[in-house]
């Protein structure tokens, strides 16, 4: 695809959308994303319990946030959850996706079946697994959610169960984009299945992996319902990830100033991390995976 055909249009300006066409989108984004974020930033410098007017307290919430032991613990858990989820989901969805990209009716049918978990609401999924993991009446007669590692792995598993289908779809799409000629050429050169996978499929899926990876990382950073329903941050505070901490501060303690500080921190951290990922992976430069072809 030549760059000029890709939406930007030729310099003549013919058929180019007028700037005002972007207005609805921009307004929507400004109203429902930017404005609330700015408000949260403002609120983070105040103390407000939801009643009356917020009272300015300067940097008090931020000082408290940085000195909060729970933040350190929460950050550790959040990072751990992100990394483990990323590994767990990437490996499975990559393999499934590449497999599903192949031809054959059975693959098409199974791909559709695999997609079902993604269509369910996360709340319903969490409630379902909560019942299955019940130590007395569940299928596993162990106190899974009562132990630190059990609760953590349960969250990783349930998250994976729900979102692997989505990433499988991304990888399936990515794998279908790989030109057939590459495989034909490799076959002539005598490359076997594994060699083809590692030398052609994997490198060709680099941009796909970045897309899916960024989505996973940002997703894990803002993961919430599953923790709320499965563990409520427990046992103790061992699975209290940042969004859960924010929810507790806001809607349990009615400490909206502090909750806003956590929220702002999350926005900054998630944005920085995804920019960093894009940078490191070279995705930003949009270098084609098909150079020299």
């Amino acid at each position: 695809m030549s760059p000029s055909a890709a939406g930007g249009g030729p310099p003549t300006g013919a058929g180019r959308p007028h700037t005002s066409w972007a207005l609805p989108g921009v307004l929507f984004f400004a109203f429902f994303a930017v404005a609330p974020m700015v408000l949260a930033l403002c609120l983070s410098f105040t103390e407000w319990n939801g009643l009356g007017d917020p009272e300015p307290v300067g940097l008090a919430n931020w000082r408290r946030l940085l000195g909060d032991d729970r933040l350190t613990q929460s950050l550790t858990v959040t990072v751990l959850l992100t990394v483990v989820s990323w590994v767990f989901q990437t490996v499975i969805s990559l393999l499934l996706g590449v497999w599903a990209a192949g031809r054959g009716r059975n693959r098409a049918i199974l791909s559709a079946v695999f997609f079902v978990p993604f269509l369910l609401s996360s709340t319903a999924i969490s409630l379902l697994f909560y019942a299955l993991l019940d130590p007395n009446f569940g299928i596993v007669h162990r106190d899974t959610l009562g132990s630190t590692s059990g609760a953590f792995l349960a969250i990783v598993f349930v998250g994976g169960w729900q979102f692997i289908p989505f990433h499988t779809l991304i990888y399936q799409g990515g794998a279908r984009q790989i030109p057939e000629v590459l495989y034909q050429a490799a076959a002539i050169d005598g490359a076997g299945r594994y060699r083809q996978f590692f030398s052609i499929t994997l490198p060709q899926l680099r941009n796909t992996a970045t897309t899916s990876g960024v989505l996973m990382v940002v997703g894990s950073l803002t993961y919430f319902e599953t923790v709320l329903i499965l563990t409520q941050g427990g046992p103790g505070t061992d699975t209290a990830i940042l969004p859960y901490l924010m929810y507790q501060a806001g809607f349990k303690s009615y400490d909206f100033g502090y909750a806003s500080a956590i929220a702002t921190f999350l926005v900054v951290a998630a944005t920085a991390l995804s920019l960093l990922l894009v940078r490191l992976s070279g995705f930003g430069a949009m270098r084609s995976t098909r150079e020299g072809m």
Binding site: F32, A33, A35, P36, M37, L39, A40, L43, S85, Q89, F118, S122, G159, Q162, F163, F166, H167, I170, S212, L215, M216, V218, G219, S220, L221, T222, Y223, F224, E225, P243, M246, G250, A259, S260, A263, L266, V267, A270
Partner: peptide, 19 residues
């Protein structure tokens, strides 16, 4: 965890601040 969560999650914080 991916777009749904990333979106869902982001919406959460958006929704929160919006509220």
């Amino acid at each position: 965890m991916e777009s749904q969560t990333s979106n869902g999650g982001r919406t959460f914080s958006r929704r929160w601040v919006l509220g």
